[in-house]
Write a protein that binds this DNA or RNA. Sequence first.
DNA 1: ACCAGGTTGTTGACGTGTCATCCACCCTAG
DNA 2: CTAGGGTGGATGACACGTCAACAACCTGGT
Lengths: 154, 154
Amino acid sequence: MNATPRWLNPEQQAAWDGFIRMQEKLIGRLSRRVQADSRMSPADYIVLAKLTEAGGRMRFMDLTKLVEWEKSRMSHQVARMAKRGLVAKEECPDDGRGAFIVATPAGREAIEEAAPVHVEHVRRLFIDALTQEELDALARISNRVLAHLEKQPD
Amino acid sequence: MNATPRWLNPEQQAAWDGFIRMQEKLIGRLSRRVQADSRMSPADYIVLAKLTEAGGRMRFMDLTKLVEWEKSRMSHQVARMAKRGLVAKEECPDDGRGAFIVATPAGREAIEEAAPVHVEHVRRLFIDALTQEELDALARISNRVLAHLEKQPD
DNA sequence: ACCAGGTTGTTGACGTGTCATCCACCCTAG
DNA sequence: CTAGGGTGGATGACACGTCAACAACCTGGT
């Protein structure tokens, strides 16, 4: 009923399957290890990392854009992190709607403890699997795909 | 306070960051498109695909292993899919604990409709971004990481 | 015959992501 | 100065994944 759906050829299929499997296992393992070792989810980690890199105090929307998340996701995430004492919300005098997100001392302590653990796991699970040439090739490929996605509608 | 945590060097960092960004955007886009176009989640898709490939009727645990999921995840997923009429559960005469998962006609219809859409999106978002050499390189790299993960404890 | 230990599969609680919707506020054209 | 549209964020409903615990069943050794 439609002119042959153009299935993937075997090499394409192998590349896609391999990539999907690899990515699932790798991310899964890393998430579990980070969570188990540092009591922080990967989401907590990246938010706190970016926030403290930027001085530990940012407007909500700036943080959202920096991390490249949807605002609703960030809103939920920040709410949970606030409940657990990792960040705090302050209201913004300049803009009545606005909010500042601030890393609490507990948050700073958590990220400083988590960061070396995180990097060790990345090294152990990923970096150590590949040569520098392979890493370079992967970086190039990733950037190609990212560039392609940006040109692509939707 | 600790013998330098061995941060990643710039090339390693670039490879990791690029990979993570690419993988998040790519998977995110694909999931949203598949869901929007076919009313199926990626999880529905893979379960139905593997199930029908295998004849449309399998023991629960065999399906779980085939898809490489945890049994609890599969149990939840199958429950949701059963509620939506994509699969059905039958009990197993040989083993009192066991269950067969069966693709319903609606399930078969759904996967047959979704598959070409899915492959088109994979092609458009991913395959078309890369040359065959790059795809081969990525496949090799993925397999290296997978092999590395299998040797790695935890 | 029995029981110890391994399978099969479910369940509930919880954290997370998405979507749609909403409100409060800001800003600019008229 | 005011109406409308855009922006900053929050919220509620829902799908999804993980973990830990559990119930039911099978299997092998004694």
